[in-house]
Design a protein around this nucleic acid. Structure first.
Ligand SMILES: Nc1ccn([C@H]2C[C@H](O)[C@@H](COP(=O)(O)OP(=O)(O)OP(=O)(O)O)O2)c(=O)n1
Ligand SMILES: [Mg+2]
Ligand SMILES: [Mg+2]
Length: 856
DNA sequence: ATCCTCCCCTAC
DNA sequence: TAAGGTAGGGGAGGAT
């Protein structure tokens, strides 16, 4: 690498020399003061750009240096984009156009900004600013300080509902269209599954269809070819809204939260809308989208009528942008109940003909019509007319349908049919039909892929067909390349998926997240964990892998976002943790997530979005439910879980240390201990490299319990089940090792990577406090018991077993010495919780003394 | 090779 | 003001 740089440097000097020499008077000096570095593949090539620079007074850097004024790129991978976010990354056409015009054009018209975080939500369209420009450099700095918004007006300060308010979650979800369409999508997938399970195999619709076909005396010539239908409601939300607003039919309309013509909102202080808008900026072809003013509405359009689409309005666009394109645009409010009703009716109507349905969303599905058509002797188009009329009659909303021999063709046919139409793409015309399809119309080709294809000079499927399979695979990856290769020829071998089972359950909120301290974040995360938990229970699932997703304000992004309570320009962070057993419990999920959060270096005030996802799902049968509640809450009183015989007593050489604390009785000064750190866990913890079992301690359970049947387990006598649970293993695929010494299991010095969110003390400090606590108090306070148990459980969740174990062992010693039954009960209470948590996280319990001897 | 984690992308 | 969710496919890159 160093060599490479050196070599490039050399070349650089040569170029500089040349530039200084022969060209100073030859070409123009358009690029005076400009030094570019070309990053990645460009059109024209880096070499031609270099020549242009040299010819017109600019400097070309072979390597990016701090003298580089502009980076030239056509297409940067995300990671690079992130690094370069604050630099001027400009499209090559800036150079080309400037040369053509003979003057230095404003580079800001050619910025290659894309923000993934932003883009995600714009559904591939829309919020892309064209010209209006912003100083990328300084303004944001000033505005970052805008947090110091005048504390003057208290009334103004009355923040509208943000995530610190207790009802925020339900309030937000009740208004979120994206939440509603996701939820409804899941609902109707489930509905189809349920209908299929309950089906008696009869389809009343088929007879009606047959009868209808007979009257219009047609007998369709059945072919054995598969016929796939795709059916989708026309501008769904708008259509539903129009049912009781017939006077608005024919007008350009949009469904949004905002009113459109309302009084222009006053500008919030500290907002640098232009900064954020820079990230929306897109490729040249989208420069047609008009500029937004500071007060234009950033409310998103869920759905717009076809009249509005004529002006260029799209679903997902900001209302402000849309109004620029279509000043007559009228808005309609949401009607989530209505959407659900109409969806229901849509699904019922189709289901009367066949249950070979793959639900796509609340307004859309694939149907394998092969059987229906054969049995009712009708053609696809006849079936579609019949079906679409019925849907319109029943719901007052129109749908469009497309047919083809695979799902790709059906989809494209629907697109062609819209609105309120139908189209059958017959096998014989596929190849001609495909030629003119633009690549962005292919499913799976969104903003990004489209832009990558465009820079390769590919706009239509016919262009794409020129590439051989291996080229596409090399460029886009094996599967994606393969799919592209087939799709541009109208081929799609992906079968419809009727039975459907979920692979993940999640809840996230990237709106209204404004915390001032850690506590607020914790409270909110607990609520979100509750949301995930209840969703899991609703579908009788639980999962082993828990993932926390954060959106964190980008370093250079202003604190105030352009959109009110929006997330602004963010970095995303995802971290997951895998448990020994599948769970659905709110507290466990919250604990895991909080443990992850504590290890991430994020300031609570920079959080802009939070999500929790659960994967590796297993079904949550009755048996499991029992097991779960057993694991979580425990059902037996103060009984010891351990079955160990000979846990050797570790000895902790003493040394005294001062700790200063005050407050609860568990806080005072105390003696700290030093300890050797090896935590003995019964049963193997995982495949840690400490494979050498230090001591084949005591008895072991017979094995191969990885697939143990929960129902059987639940039926076992209590004590036997206990033993089984002790051996319940975390990682069913790993080779079994028994009684492994888990030393520094996860991260050797996890002690605290800590960050802004961690308030925990060191193990030594805790131990000291515990000693003080036990020796000074006659009777343990329940709040202190709980506090200690919480601490220990948190350590387990953080895989901080060693620290936790030390504290537990010490606690045992102190309590043993105390010889007090209330203290022993307190100890048992704590141990119970610890062992339960151990089981969930590690699938194993700690090996501990199971009785008090008093003497030591 | 195959798996896992951490992303990114796409779709509605 | 504004309500920027959620599930699934897949790739890169490291561990096994
Ligand atoms: N960015 C988007 C896209 C869609 N939706 C909602 C509103 C739509 O009405 C519904 C269905 O999405 P479609 O893609 O089917 O779009 P429409 O039904 O509105 O129009 P079309 O006639 O093109 O199907 O999902 C949304 O809220 N935001
Ligand atoms: Mg639709
Ligand atoms: Mg749709």
């Amino acid at each position: 690498m160093a060599a490479k740089k050196a070599k490039l440097q050399e070349q650089f000097s040569e170029d500089a020399a040349k530039e200084g020499g022969s060209h100073s008077n030859a070409g123009s000096s358009i690029f005076q003061g400009v030094a570019i570095f070309v990053n990645g593949y460009t059109v024209p090539s880096a070499d031609s750009l270099r020549r242009m620079m040299m010819l017109h007074g600019g400097v070309y850097h072979h390597y990016q240096t701090d003298k580089t004024t502009h980076i030239i790129a056509s297409n940067l991978p995300n990671c690079k984009m992130k690094q370069l976010r604050t630099l001027k990354v400009v499209k090559p056409s800036w150079i080309v156009d400037s040369v053509r015009e003979g003057r230095l054009l404003d580079y800001r018209h050619y910025l290659l900004y894309t923000s993934k975080a932003q883009a995600r939500l714009n559904f591939g369209v829309g919020e892309v600013e064209s010209s209006e420009l912003v100083q990328v450099t300084k303004t944001s700095g000033e505005n970052s300080n805008a947090a110091s918004v005048s504390t003057t007006d208290v009334a103004e300060r009355k923040q509208s509902l943000n995530a610190t308010e207790p009802d925020f979650l339900s309030e937000f979800y009740s208004h979120s269209r994206l939440h509603h369409i996701s939820t409804m999508g899941a609902l109707f997938k489930q509905y189809v599954t349920q209908l299929r399970e309950q089906s008696d195999g009869r389809f009343p619709g088929q007879e009606r269809l047959q009868e209808w076909g007979r009257r219009s005396n047609s007998s369709y010539n059945v072919s054995s070819e598969k016929v796939i239908m795709h059916i989708d409601m026309d501008c769904f939300f708008v259509s539903v809204g129009l049912r009781d607003r017939p006077h608005l039919r024919g007008l350009p309309l949009a469904v949004t939260h905002a009113k459109g013509n309302a009084t222009p909102a006053q500008q919030r202080k500290g907002v640098d809308r232009a900064f954020e808008m820079n990230y929306y900026r897109q490729k040249a072809e989208l420069d047609t989208v008009p500029t937004m003013d500071e007060t234009d509405s950033l409310s998103e359009i869920a759905s717009c009528s076809y009249e509005a689409r004529k002006c260029g309005v799209k679903n997902g666009m900001f209302l402000g942008t849309a109004l620029k394109l279509c000043p007559n645009l009228k808005t309609i409010p949401y009607d989530f109940e209505g959407y659900k009703q109409v969806s229901h009716c849509l699904y019922n109507t189709v289901a009367a003909f066949t249950l070979d349905i793959e639900a796509v969303s609340c307004d859309e599905m694939f149907v394998d019509c092969t059987d229906v058509l054969q049995r009712s002797c009708t053609s696809p188009m006849q079936f579609a007319s019949f079906l679409r009329h019925e849907i319109e009659d029943k719901t007052g909303c129109t749908a469009s349908a497309g047919f083809g021999s695979n799902r790709l063709q059906a989809r494209l046919a629907t697109k062609k049919a819209k609105p309120n139409g139908q189209f059958h793409l017959e096998p014989s015309s596929v190849s001609v039909f495909m030629r003119d399809i633009v690549v962005e119309d292919l499913p799976g080709v969104g903003r990004n892929l489209a832009s990558r294809l465009h820079t390769m000079g590919v706009r239509t499927c016919s262009d794409l067909q020129h590439f051989i399979q291996s080229q596409l695979q090399k460029e886009f990856g094996a599967k994606t390349g393969n799919a592209l290769y087939g799709h541009c020829r109208g081929e799609d071998n992906q079968a419809l998926n009727f039975g459907h089972q979920r692979k993940s359950v999640s809840a996230e909120v990237n709106y209204g997240i404004r915390f001032t301290n850690q506590e607020e974040a914790v409270v909110f995360i607990k609520q979100l964990a509750g949301e995930v938990s209840s969703r899991l229970r609703k579908v009788k699932l639980k999962g082993r892998c828990i993932t926390l997703k954060l959106m964190v304000r980008a370093k250079e992004a202003p604190i105030e976002t352009a959109k009110f309570l929006g997330h602004g320009v963010c970095d995303q962070v995802t971290r997951s943790s895998t448990l020994a057993t599948a769970v659905a419990d709110q507290d466990i999920i919250a604990r895991e997530v909080l443990s992850i959060l504590r290890q991430l270096p994020v300031r609570p005030s920079d959080l802009r979005g939070i999500g929790i996802q659960v994967t590796r799902l297993e079904s949550d049968s009755m048996g499991n439910k029992f097991l779960d509640s057993f694991l979580i809450r425990g059902t037996r009183g103060g009984q010891e879980v351990g079955s160990s015989t000979a846990a050797q007593e570790e000895s902790y050489p003493q040394s005294t240390v001062q700790a200063t604390n005050e407050g609860s009785s568990l806080q005072s000064r105390a003696t700290a201990h030093q300890a050797e750190s090896s935590t003995v866990v019964q049963q193997e913890g995982c495949t840690s490299e400490t494979g050498h079992a230090a001591k084949p301690q005591s008895q072991l359970m017979p094995h191969e319990l990885c697939d143990l049947d929960e129902e059987v387990l639940a039926a076992l006598p209590e004590d036997i089940r206990q033993e089984v649970l002790q051996t319940y293993r975390p990682n069913s695929s790993s080779q079994v090792q028994r009684d492994v010494v888990v030393t520094n299991l996860k991260s050797p010095t996890t002690e605290q990577v800590d960050t802004s969110l961690c308030s925990s003390m060191t193990a030594d400090e805790v131990r000291a406090l515990v000693k003080e606590w036990v020796s000074c108090e006659d009777m343990p306070q329940s709040c202190d018991v709980r506090m200690l148990a919480d601490y220990l459980e948190r350590q387990i969740a953080s895989r901080n077993i060693d620290d936790m174990y030390i504290v537990v062992k010490c606690l045992y010693r102190y309590v043993n010495k105390k010889n007090s039954s209330v203290w022993q009960d307190a100890y048992q209470t704590i141990i119970k919780k610890v062992q339960d948590t151990m089981l969930v996280v590690y699938g194993a319990t700690l090996k501990l003394q199971d009785s008090f001897k008093h003497d030591v």
